[in-house]
Each structure stands twice: as structure tokens, then as C-alpha cells.
Simulated assay, not measured.
Amino acid sequence: MAVVGTVAVAGMALAVFLLPQRNPPPVTAQPSATQDDQPIGEQEVAALTPRGLKVTADQGALVELRWSLPAGARRYPVVLQRSPAKQGEQPITALTQGATSARVAGLDPRTGYCFLVGVPLAFSERSTVAWSKPTCIRGAVARPTQ
């Protein structure tokens, strides 16, 4: 039985499908301060950032993407962000844990797009996502990050 959870990533609602584990790890007592209380450091984010995002095929309405993940990032879920998104579409798509490729369908062949791949590291009011560098197609230009 799959469990669906909704989380916020960079202000966007995102449904994440969690599959039960056959042999879940044992639960151990945690110190009074949890990791959620402490911000994730820039070095940890950089160490888990997807790398080498590239378009491997552009077939107009369908684009294929590929990237690599550092070993430590393979235990996290992966998300794909597309810009622009049509009215009513979600710009962020949940992928499987450790994913290193994706196919994006339903694109307008006359429109330029930019893509980012991210590894969500914390879900809270201050969500932390290790985002790749953007890759763009058809003349689109990524907006600078803050």
C-alpha cells in the first residue's frame, strides 16, 4: 500500500509517494534537538547537489533529461522543475528516489524551457533543496538565483 504525503518545496505543494519498506530500519531514540531544528549547511547542500544536468533528446513535445547524483544524494527523493509551466500545471514533478533521468512530455514545441533537478533535504517552513544548475532549450534563459 502506497502512502501519499503532501509537502511544500520552495512554496509549491508537492505530492510525494512513499512506498512501505519490507524491513524498515529500527527506530532509535533521538537527542532532544532534532535535525529539523538545525539548518542544513551550505557544504552539505553542495555535496548533495545533482550535477551535469543535460538534455539528451529534444523531440518537440517530449524532452529527455539526464544528470548524475552524488552517492549520498541517492537516498533522497528527486524533483524536477520546469519553467515555464502552463496555467494550472505544477512546475515541480516528484521523481523516484535516486532518479538520474526523466522524460518530460506535453511541452509546446515552439516554447523555450529551463529545467532544474533537485534533492529535497528538509521539508519545513524553510525547506532546503539542493538544486542543480539549470539547463535550457530553444533559446530560453534561466533567471538568476538570489
Rank of each mutant, 00 (worst) to 15 (best):
R74M: 10
D36S: 03
A46G: 04
V117P: 01
L121D: 03
V16E: 05
Q30E: 11
A94F: 14
P144L: 04
V63E: 12
Q81V: 01
R75E: 10
G106L: 02
S83G: 06
A122N: 02
R75V: 11
T56P: 05
L18V: 14
A57I: 04
Y113A: 02
L48N: 07
R138S: 09
G106Q: 13
D58W: 01
L48F: 06
P70F: 03
P24A: 12
Q90H: 10
D108H: 05
R75H: 04
Q87V: 03
P20F: 06
A73I: 06
R126D: 11
Q87C: 02
S32N: 05
S68F: 03
R143I: 06
T28H: 12
L107A: 00
R103H: 04
G118M: 12
A73S: 08
P144H: 09
Q21A: 07
L18D: 06
G112I: 10
S127R: 07
S68Y: 10
K54R: 07
Q81T: 02
E64V: 08
Q38K: 12
T145R: 02
L53K: 01
G52D: 09
Q87D: 10
T135D: 12
V9I: 14
C114G: 15
G60Y: 10
L48A: 06
P25T: 07
A85Q: 08
S124H: 14
L121C: 01
R51Q: 11
W67Q: 13
L69R: 02
A85H: 04
R75P: 05
L95N: 11
V119Y: 01
P26Q: 06
K133Y: 15
M12G: 04
I137E: 10
L80N: 03
V7F: 09
P91C: 03
K86Y: 07
V27E: 06
Q30W: 05
A57D: 08
R51G: 09
